[in-house]
């Protein structure tokens, strides 16, 4: 083996080692599969506790709440203006029952997206009576499980309440504005289709035309042979 070749092999080995280190290929033995934890910023796995299905606004207490947890009650009602959707209102109280002002109440909807998880709706800060509310316009009609969770109350753990919202008013489906060049857009598929068709015809012509020419050439020769 020449010296130059040895140097090249060494460089290649170095690059391969770099790739291995960079890709973090350690622990790739069968069965060792590492997955990232799902994102918890906007979506989070739901808390335990299942409520009764149905009902216009069925209040359900949080399951197995901590003794010093804030008390949260959740109500849903139609908004003052119907197209706005629904008001999700939570009342937050300290563990001894006094209204908790300044608590952050975050509202979620339990959704089934790559598994059951919570979708953030919005958050609000409770007023002097411990009330916090947001307006929610769901994307689809039907039953929605809503979760309200309070944080930020001194000497109290996070409290939670759940409710089922039966929605009949929903947000309009997203429809982008028609761009001024939409006529051009609409024509593009036909133009592209014609080009693709022309290419396929050309390929067919190249293949079949050549085959025909070669076979004919062979036949002509055979015929000449017979005549001779």
């Amino acid at each position: 083996m020449t010296r130059g070749l040895r140097v090249l092999i060494a460089v290649l080995a170095l690059v391969a080692a770099t790739v291995v280190l960079q890709l973090d290929l350690r622990g790739l033995l069968p069965g060792q599969v590492r997955l990232e934890a799902p994102n918890t910023m906007l979506m989070s796995p739901p808390s335990s506790g299942q409520g009764a299905p149905g009902g216009v606004s069925a209040q359900r207490p949080a399951a197995a709440a901590a003794p010093n947890a804030a008390r949260v009650q959740l109500r849903t009602s139609a908004a003052a203006s119907a197209p706005d959707g629904y008001v999700l209102a939570a009342s937050v109280a300290t563990p001894d029952g006094r209204p908790a002002a300044g608590a952050t109440v975050t509202f979620y909807e339990v959704v089934d997206l790559l598994g059951s998880r919570e979708m953030l709706i919005d958050s609000a800060t409770s007023d002097g009576r411990g009330n916090a509310s947001v307006v929610y316009l769901p994307a689809r009609a039907g039953s929605h499980e809503i979760v309200a969770r309070s944080t930020g109350i001194a000497k109290a753990a996070s409290g939670e309440a759940r409710s089922t919202l039966e929605a009949t008013v929903t947000a309009k489906a997203y429809a982008p504005e028609t761009p001024s060049i939409s006529a051009f857009y609409n024509a593009v598929p036909y133009g592209v289709g014609l080009v693709v068709l022309a290419v396929w015809l050309l390929i067919a012509f190249a293949l079949l035309g050549t085959a025909r020419g070669v076979v004919r050439g062979a036949r002509r020769e055979e015929e000449k042979g017979v005549i001779a």
Binding site: V199, A206, G213, V214, R216, G217, A218, E221
Partner: peptide
């Protein structure tokens, strides 16, 4: 081989087909 004998007519047909494909394969 489609009965290839290297006759001029066969050569012409092949040159045309290969030429088309050589040009076509680049934009494709």
């Amino acid at each position: 081989s489609l009965g290839w004998r290297g006759r001029p007519a066969q050569e012409r047909a092949l040159a045309r087909g290969v030429g088309i494909m050589a040009v076509l394969i680049i934009p494709l």
